[in-house]
Design a protein around this nucleic acid. Sequence first.
DNA 1: CGTGTAAGGAATTCTGACACG
DNA 2: CGTGTAAGGAATTCTGACACG
Lengths: 112, 112
Amino acid sequence: MSQPDLSYKDKKVISIGTVSELTGLTLRQIRYYEERKLIAPYRNESGTRKYSFTDIETLMDIADKREDGVQTTEILKELRLKEKKRESEMDVKKKMLQGQLNAQFKQGRGRS
Amino acid sequence: MSQPDLSYKDKKVISIGTVSELTGLTLRQIRYYEERKLIAPYRNESGTRKYSFTDIETLMDIADKREDGVQTTEILKELRLKEKKRESEMDVKKKMLQGQLNAQFKQGRGRS
DNA sequence: CGTGTAAGGAATTCTGACACG
DNA sequence: CGTGTAAGGAATTCTGACACG
């Protein structure tokens, strides 16, 4: 057990100043996109925001869209779509496992 | 071109407070291990230390060793060894590429 | 040697608000 | 709607030093 934390990409550990440097966005913009639900940083005990590399990628995506004049509301919809995609990809994997398990333990069942 | 930055693990973006939480080490300890050259955080313009996930792994390694009573000098040596290993692993990959390139462009060469 | 702590200062981040368009 | 900015405060980080063992 204990995989060596492959999910560094999703660990929320980067503070907003660093995110600003990495994305080129101002603190104001980053906080505003949070207000509009485009991102959801973690908040530590004292209220400081912490972001993941994934958040940073999302922010760079947002920056591009905004440059093209896309409004945050639109961007939000697009982001939700991408989420769906990621989820269904996960589902594929889950279902493959499920299928195997089902095949293993299958038993006759009435449609009740 | 432009691989999507697979090297998140090595990006120095985490501040010392977060590193402290993640490793369980005190700020004092983390700074001291730097003094002893066991780690080398990045320093931003204003002098604030920034660590990578790799640094964090190293620190957890150090914590274990210290609990076993190993001195920082010893730990330093061990760390240098691991570096060597990583380098030679990289070398293997490089050499494989080199080999292919050489095979492609090989030309007779006098021993000068 | 490795770590704790108090000290003073500088840099960071937070929120709510007013401004402009 | 999206972003800038000044405001006041709280939390973070930094360094050098004294302490203990």
